[in-house]
């Protein structure tokens, strides 16, 4: 992905900033600037998601494009955010066999990819199992 294209959505990718239609109340992440239900009568405002959700479905990517080849195998999932919308994201787990449908997850800040060794680093949101920290 080109630098301007990544940069344009940095705050959305880092902070799960989506949108909400004030007409029908539906929330959007990835963000939409046009409500598919209310169309022109809807007013779209920014809406920030809390980063908690549940795995709706998932896969383990074993063969990836060049940009992700060094990360395989990794879990890719569709996650339903608690506020409603669904998003595609990686789930970071100790062992890929941990992943399951219905798994509770929370968002974390990670490297998504890089443009080779000298190019830009793309940061963004991934998810991890939402389990309490053990007693210290």
């Amino acid at each position: 992905m080109s630098v301007p294209r990544f940069w344009r959505k940095i705050s959305k990718r880092y902070n799960l900033e989506g949108t909400r239609c004030t007409q029908c109340g539906r929330t959007f992440y990835p963000p939409r600037t046009f409500c598919p239900d209310c169309r022109r009568s809807g007013e779209i405002v920014p809406f920030r998601f809390q980063g908690k959700g549940e795995v709706v479905t998932f896969t383990v990517i074993r063969t990836a494009s060049d940009a992700f080849a060094r990360q395989t195998p990794f879990v890719l999932a569709i996650i339903r955010l608690d506020e409603g919308p669904r998003v595609t994201a990686q789930v970071v787990v100790e062992n890929v066999s941990e992943a399951h449908i219905g798994m509770r997850v929370r968002s974390v800040f990670r490297r998504i990819g890089t443009e080779g060794d000298s190019g830009v680093i793309y940061y963004g949101t991934k998810f991890v199992p939402d389990v309490p920290y053990p007693e210290g």
Binding site: T57, T59, T63, A64
Partner: peptide, 23 residues
């Protein structure tokens, strides 16, 4: 697929259909 919100995070075509199969 959606380059900005699927491809960007590492989704491949087999990966997307695999998520359909899992569901």
């Amino acid at each position: 697929a959606d380059r900005e919100w699927e491809g960007f995070v590492g989704a491949t075509f087999p990966g997307l259909y695999a998520m359909i199969a899992s569901d």
